[in-house]
């Protein structure tokens, strides 16, 4: 039988080759100091009527980088996304299913029924985008002028005998816009 030391050396060399091959995907999110936040992004947050503790994040990925401000107010989670120059991209607010209007609910359920035999809505976010002033006006005064509203749902369903999660986006009337399967992060170090 192979000596344990020789076996260890063999396994380390074999796995090192795998490491080199695996380093192609790139996605990273990390905390950002307030001093590193672009002035116009900071000014947008400062203009909000609710002043909560804001956590800033920088996100790097294959499609582009962005800056996110995350905070919670009145038990509601907000995520406000800017480009790296501090220009507003969108505002995401976590909501509950009853917060969605009945007509939009009906449209969404009709789509899900038609496409998935089994489904469960795990999470809903409403997205608002548009000119910075319009979105700010909406957040502070709840006036919905000149902004685009979308619903982003995280839906659990089955695909080829396997449970999967989809991110499904609908417009403000509940019309389907896009579907993307969510790739799970590796949990081997928690399972074994």
């Amino acid at each position: 039988m192979m000596n344990p030391k020789n076996l260890t050396t063999f396994v380390i060399i074999f796995l090192s080759l795998n490491v080199i091959q695996a380093q192609t995907k790139f996605e990273k999110e990390y905390r950002l100091k307030n001093s590193s936040v672009p002035a116009n992004a900071q000014a947008f947050i400062d203009s909000l009527h609710f002043q909560e503790k804001v956590k800033w994040y920088f996100e790097e990925n294959n499609t582009g980088n962005s800056i996110e401000a995350k905070f919670k107010t009145h038990k509601t989670k907000y995520s406000i996304e800017f480009d790296v120059d501090g220009k507003l991209q969108d505002v995401e607010i976590e909501i509950k299913w009853p917060d969605v209007s009945k007509s939009v609910q009906d449209q969404i359920i009709t789509f899900l029924d038609a496409n998935y035999g089994f489904f469960k809505i795990e999470k809903i976010q409403v997205q608002h985008s548009g000119a910075s002033d319009s979105v700010l006006h909406f957040l502070n005064d709840k006036k919905t002028q000149d902004i685009t509203t979308r619903y982003e749902l995280i839906v659990k369903t089955r695909l080829i005998r396997k449970v999967v999660l989809f991110e499904i986006v609908f417009d403000e009337k509940g019309q389907h816009l896009s579907t993307a399967q969510i790739q799970f992060k590796n949990i081997d170090n928690l399972e074994y």
Binding site: K28, Y30, R31, Y57, K185
Partner: peptide, 20 residues
């Protein structure tokens, strides 16, 4: 029972440290 906690950001990403 195992808890995994990122030491930077809200999730553990490549190139980052975490506590377990």
């Amino acid at each position: 029972l195992t808890a995994e906690l990122p030491l930077n950001g809200e999730s553990v990403d490549p190139g980052e440290w975490y506590a377990k």
